[in-house]
Structures are given as structure tokens and as C-alpha cells.
Amino acid sequence: MEMKMKAGATTIKKKRYTGYFSDIKKNWQLYVMILLPLIYILVFKYYPMYGARIAFCDYIPQKGVAGSEWVGLKHFINFINSPQFFVLIKNTLTLSLYSLLLSIPFPILLALSLHYLINQRFKKVVQMSTYLPHFLSTVIIVSMLHLIFNTQSGVVNNILNAITGEKINFMSLSKYFRHMYVWSGVWQDVGWNSILYISALAGVDPQLHEAAIIDGAGKWRRIWHIDIASIMPTISIMIIMSMGSIISVGFDKSFLMQNPTNLDVSEILSTYEYKIGIGGGMPNYSYPAAIALMTSIVTFILICVTNKISKSLSETSLW
């Protein structure tokens, strides 16, 4: 019995091998096409993952990884025990959760509003003007914040000055940093993020609405019971996707908005990695690499977990 199974397994294996070979022969051009992208992915995405092993040693560039001393989890433990650990995690999570809290409901609200606008021309105008900021760079967004909120020529302070007689330096005070960061993000991406919901709303079965109208349901109730209920899968996909970035908040915006006075709240994991790694005078590679690796692993776990939860709750998932 066992012998038979083994024999069977080898013939299947053989068949699969010859299958690959005949496939290469038949589809060799497809293999040629994928070659360049594959090399790109291996070199620029997978090699750095392999390179992340410097997190486990005291890497000295002149000696290479092999010549550097292997220290195991030293850098990871040092980071967790360092005074910065708590502050960095807190700053990073506050920014991302604050963003997430707003970046889920606002696009839905906008999409619903647009969906129920009767004047199609007006709808188009609103839509187009909400997409536009998405194409502005982070540098431009931060620059615009500086221009609008500065104390010399900024319009917000001019108006504030006319009303209260004082000016507030929004861009350098710690207590405003998070609000400036998050709300400018909402301004930039609310339109863009609403596109998916707009399309999902357009796909809602009109018969549901007709039946509800006959039953005497007004727009408020139809929005709640039909529209929101129907776009729930889209909402959960969006939540899963944003869960991934909850700890890996991007470098650019925080870095560009940083100044010496708001550093206590604007220093996040990615900017800290840069600063101690390559931004400072002495290059120090292993320690920031360990921080980055930890971030990556946590991100990956978060994506898997939210995906799983969403799968069991609503049968929608990324994979």
C-alpha cells in the first residue's frame, strides 16, 4: 500500500516537472517578459529583506556582514528598553489612529452626500475639486500649511488676529502638530478615498430602494438600512488595508513638518530610524535596521490578523 502511494507520488512529481518544461518550451516568451520585473523585485525588494539581517549583528560596512560580530537580539532588546521606545510608539500610533479615525468616516460621508446630489453638474464640480489635492506632493502640502498658518502673512492668523487680537504659531507648537498633520491629510485624501465608496454606492441594487420607498422609508432611513449596509464589505476592506500602515507611518510628512520645538510629538519610528541611521554624523546601521524589522513584522502580523477577523465576520478579505 505504502509502496504504491510512493510510486504514485513520484509519477505525479515527474509529470509536474515535465509539465513545467513543456510550459517553458511553449510559453518561453512569457518567461522572457517576466524576467526583467522579476529581477527588479528580487534586487530592490527581496535583497533588502535579506540585508535586514544586519539587525542581528554589529554591522561595520568595511568588514561586511560576515566579518561583523553576531549579537543576536541585542539591538531589539536595547530598543525596547530604551527611553525612546515608549515615546516613539505613542507618537506613531497616535498619528495613525487619529488619521484612521477620520479617514474612514469622512470619505463615506462625502460619498453618500455626492450620491444623493440631484444636480449632476454640481456633483461633478464637487467631485473634481475633492480629487485634486491628492496629486499635490507632500512637500507642497506642508508648504501650503506653512503659508496659510504662518504668523507673518498667513490668512488664518490674519483672521484670528482681527477677531481675537493675537496670533498663534500653529506650525511650531507641539500641541497643534497632530491636528495639522491629520486634518491636512483628510483635506488631501478625502476625495480620493471616497471614489471606492461612490462606485460601491452606484452598485447598490435599485430594487432595494424602490421596495423601501413603497414601504415609506425616507432617504435618512434608506441610507442607514440599505446604503451603509450594502457598502459594508468595501468599508471592511478599507479598514484592513489601513491597518497595515498603523505602525509604519510614512517618513515624508512628519519629517517635513518637524522642527526643534515640536519634536516631542513629531518624532515617529520612521524619522527616528533615519536620524540615528544615516541622518546623524556617525552612521549606525544595525540599531535602526532592527527597529525597521520590528515595524515590518508587526505590520505584517496586523494585516494577517485583521484580514482573518474580517474574513470570519463578513466574508470579505484581501486573500
Binding site: 510550459d23 517576466i34 544586519i54 497595515g244
Partner: peptide, 27 residues
């Protein structure tokens, strides 16, 4: 294209996991 699922996964995985700033910088 026989190996497409494997290759697709290889590409997709890079969206969820990255080597980080420093290894990329060194590369």
C-alpha cells in the same frame, strides 16, 4: 502561465513586508 500564482505571490508579498530603510540605503 504555469508559475503565475507563485510569481504573483512573490510580487504581492512585497506590499506587506519590506526590508526597511537602512538595507535599501546600503543596497
Amino acid at each position: 502561465f504555469t508559475i503565475r500564482n507563485g510569481i504573483a505571490l512573490l510580487f504581492a508579498f512585497t506590499m506587506w513586508f519590506s526590508g526597511g530603510l537602512i538595507p535599501t540605503y546600503l543596497l
